[in-house]
Amino acid sequence: SDFTIRIGDRTLHLKNVSEEILKILEELLRRGIDFEELRKIVEELIK
C-alpha cells in the first residue's frame, strides 16, 4: 500500500509498503524518531 509521512514541513512518500514495514515505521514515529533517521531507515528497507 502507499503511505505518506509528514513531519513538520517535510514529506516522505512510500509506495508498495508492506503492513509489517508500516507497523515498524509507526512504532518509530511513536518513539519520536528524527525525520532524517526515519528517511535513512526507509531507504534501507525499500532497497
Rank of each mutant, 00 (worst) to 15 (best):
I46D: 13
L29M: 11
N16C: 02
R10K: 14
L45Q: 07
F35V: 07
K23M: 14
V42F: 04
G32M: 03
E43F: 09
D34S: 12
E20K: 07
S18T: 08
F3Q: 04
S18Y: 01
L38S: 01
T4L: 12
K47V: 13
I33K: 09
V42R: 01
K23Q: 13
F35M: 07
V42T: 11
D34Q: 13
D34K: 09
V17Y: 01
K47C: 14
L14E: 00
V17C: 04
D9R: 03
L45R: 03
E19M: 10
F3P: 01
E43W: 06
L38I: 09
H13M: 06
T4V: 15
L28T: 08
R30W: 05
L25T: 09
I24K: 13
E37R: 05
I7T: 01
L22P: 06
L14A: 01
I5R: 00
L14R: 00
E37P: 05
F3C: 14
I41A: 09
I24S: 11
H13R: 06
L28W: 05
F3R: 04
F35E: 05
G8Q: 03
L14M: 04
L22Y: 08
I21P: 03
K15I: 08
E26S: 07
V42N: 02
T4G: 01
E26I: 08
E44S: 10
L14H: 00
T4N: 06
I46Y: 11
E26T: 10
D34P: 10
F35R: 02
E43V: 07
L45H: 10
T4W: 07
L14K: 00
I33Q: 07
S18H: 04
L12M: 12
F35D: 05
R39G: 09
F35Y: 12
R30I: 11
R31H: 08
I24V: 11
R39E: 15
K40G: 13
L29T: 08
R10Q: 15
E20Y: 03
R6T: 15
H13W: 01
E26L: 11
E37Q: 10
L29V: 11
F3K: 05
G32E: 13
E44F: 06
E27A: 07
L38Q: 01
I41C: 02
I5T: 00
I7P: 00
T4A: 04
V17A: 07
D9T: 11
T11F: 08
E19S: 12
R39F: 12
D9L: 03
L12Q: 00
L38N: 03
R10T: 09
E44H: 10
K47R: 09
T4H: 11
L12T: 00
K47S: 13
F3T: 08
S1Y: 15
I7C: 14
T4E: 15
D34W: 01
E27T: 07
I33W: 05
I24G: 08
N16Q: 05
I33E: 09
V42H: 05
I24A: 13
E37H: 08
V42D: 01
E20Q: 08
T11Y: 10
R31N: 11
K23I: 13
I41D: 05
E19D: 13
E27K: 04
I33P: 08
K40Q: 13
I24F: 08
D34A: 11
R30L: 12
K47M: 13
K47I: 13
R39C: 08
I24L: 12
K15T: 13
K15E: 10
L28G: 03
E27V: 09
S1I: 14
D2F: 01
F3G: 03
D34E: 14
F35L: 07
E27P: 06
R6V: 15
G32R: 00
D2T: 01
H13E: 12
I33R: 06
I41Y: 05
D34F: 04
G8W: 02
I24Y: 13
L45C: 03
D9K: 05
N16G: 12
E20D: 14
L29A: 07
L14D: 00
K47D: 11
I33S: 09
L45F: 06
L14F: 07
L29C: 08
H13Q: 07
